[in-house]
Design a protein around this nucleic acid. Structure first.
Lengths: 316, 316
DNA sequence: CTATTTTCATAACTTTGTGTTATATTAACT
DNA sequence: AGTTAATATAACACAAAGTTATGAAAATAG
């Protein structure tokens, strides 16, 4: 005997509401509709569900048993409905994001933290990668969003790009560095120190070379190469090395006092930090929400950088 | 967003079966039907449930969440279906039965025990009563079945009656009674002992009087009056009292050796033990099954009584 | 890379169930 | 007994799900 779960819910509603009419009201249906459905169900089951000739409809033993299942079904149903609501509102789900290590660790990580704080049911799957890999992963659909410095005129056709921060690099060192206290830094001073470099393939490495070239340094000694911001911080804290970092990364660390920028103006890279996503793959609500969140965060960050940047670092 | 629980079950079936086609098979539906239902649901929800362009249909995150609820619903559904099957098969439910105390305790109780052994999910609500009350309770619908000695030509119009045992009464006493060992008992012997009588209103009391009158005893001393068989047994065990009991009751006690019949032939009452039920109230399956069970038990009992009766008691 | 197989989607139509309003029936109540 | 409240029935509209036949596209094999 195949039973429609809707009917079981209906029985529960009738019993719980205390009558057919009120049950129909609770179900947002008309009374005749419910009446007929009950009659059909009784016919199909071959058993009474409500006692005959009782006017506030009194449920049979069997009816109560079935209604118990109906309540379970109703509960599962509202669970499903709230799941859909959460999902559609972007308050539940998964966002798979990837980006260049330095930005992810130095800037995005803390934003992800506050996002997770606000939307604990959104799972963020984060990974690292550089432009080419990210582009491919977006094409394959294995990630939803990439965060990466991009030359705006080099965005592949299959990707959307939204810039979120102008590219600005600074010379960075530990706050304990001999040059950190100076109000002016000369080339000769810089040349004396070893360099920490991002991995050779990274855009930041190109930036490093270009930046140093722009201030006349073409020959430099690399003492450490590493992909992670944490390793850069560690090495820098224990040595007098210098490096080139996005100003946003240095800015985000200002409270932690783990790093500082030297008053040397570097050439801006032609890339802009931005969000990349597949051009015609519909974005899941959670991803969309995370993207909006990042954009808002970066808007705030850019403003604060501008305000602070005026009297700071490369303006000096 | 209102969701049809059937759709949730469908999602679970598709995922568990590993594809839309196999899911449709599992649901006993055609593949196009399921395909379209999924499409409509996706439309309504505004979210993909299966990844686009993947041929063994691969469920989305949301889909898996919903399918979890679908499995809960499916489980509740099969629970409901088995509940109906049990109920309809008379293997679950409630049977409200009532009858005269002596028969209920002396004969029916052990039958109810073996019935409950065979059908543990049928709850039997037993109560006591004499004909008039039973008749009224049947009319009111507060009991389903009555077991009671009845004059077959006095059955009320609103009741069905099915005889299950001819009425035969015997003189009964404790096995330790002085008369118990005698092969023949004379009236003078009997007259010397006190009597245990059923309650004055009971049919058995009338039987007692009639039976004694039939053997010439019109004046007798009642030492104890009680409604329950247990009390009769107790009193009898501690005294030399006599009483009149249905032979079936004495027969059922033969193994327990709590009571024995005296070799005195009494007049048979004009009543027959039988089942009574309301004439046009549809009988619930559990009640029907219990009734059938009782009828079968009594058929066996009557046969055994006949076999044994030939060389026993009133044939002597 | 093309051909074949699998798997799913679409079309067209039928059937079933549910929704509606209007109205009849009947239990419960004063 | 008459009134009221609750449920059942009738008649019709419509949405959804069932069907078979067929088309499209992904996966697989040669």
């Amino acid at each position: 005997m195949k039973i429609d779960p809707n009917h079981l819910q209906m029985l529960a509603a009738i019993i719980d509401a205390g009558g057919l009419g009120e049950g129909a009201l609770a179900l947002n249906k008309s009374q005749p509709s419910v009446s007929r459905s009950v009659a059909m169900l009784e016919q199909r089951l071959g058993s009474r569900l409500f006692e005959k000739g009782k006017r506030p409809l009194r449920p049979t033993e069997l009816c109560k048993t079935l209604a118990d299942q109906g309540r379970i079904i109703a509960a599962a149903n509202v669970a499903a409905e709230t799941a859909v609501a959460l999902y559609s509102g972007g308050k539940a789900g998964t966002a798979r994001v990837a980006g260049t290590p330095i930005f992810m660790d130095g800037v995005i990580a803390s934003m992800m933290a506050s996002f997770q704080n606000a939307f604990p049911d959104v799972a963020i799957h984060q990974s690292y990668g550089y432009f080419d890999e990210l582009s491919e992963q977006l094409a394959l659909g294995s990630i939803d969003l990439a965060i990466c410095p991009v030359r705006p005129n080099e965005v592949p056709a299959h990707l959307n790009f939204r810039p979120i921060l102008r590219g600005r690099n600074v010379l960075a060192c530990a706050p304990s560095h001999p040059l950190a206290r100076r109000s002016a830094v000369k080339l000769e001073d810089i040349a004396a120190y070893p360099w920490i470099a991002p991995p050779a393939g990274s855009p930041l490495y190109a930036d490093l070379k270009a930046a140093l070239a722009s201030i006349g340094i073409s020959d430099f000694r690399v003492s450490f190469t590493g992909g992670s911001l944490a390793s850069i911080f560690s090495v820098m804290a224990g040595s007098d090395s210098l490096t080139v970092l996005p100003y946003s990364v240095v800015f985000m660390q200002r409270a932690a006092k783990t790093i500082t920028a030297l008053p040397v103006r570097l050439e801006h890279p032609e890339r802009e930090l931005g969000l990349l996503w597949h051009i015609d793959r519909p974005m899941r609500p959670a991803v969309r929400r995370f993207q909006r969140f990042l954009e808002a965060e970066f808007k705030g960050l850019a403003r604060r950088i501008d305000e602070r940047g005026r009297e700071d670092v490369w303006r000096r």
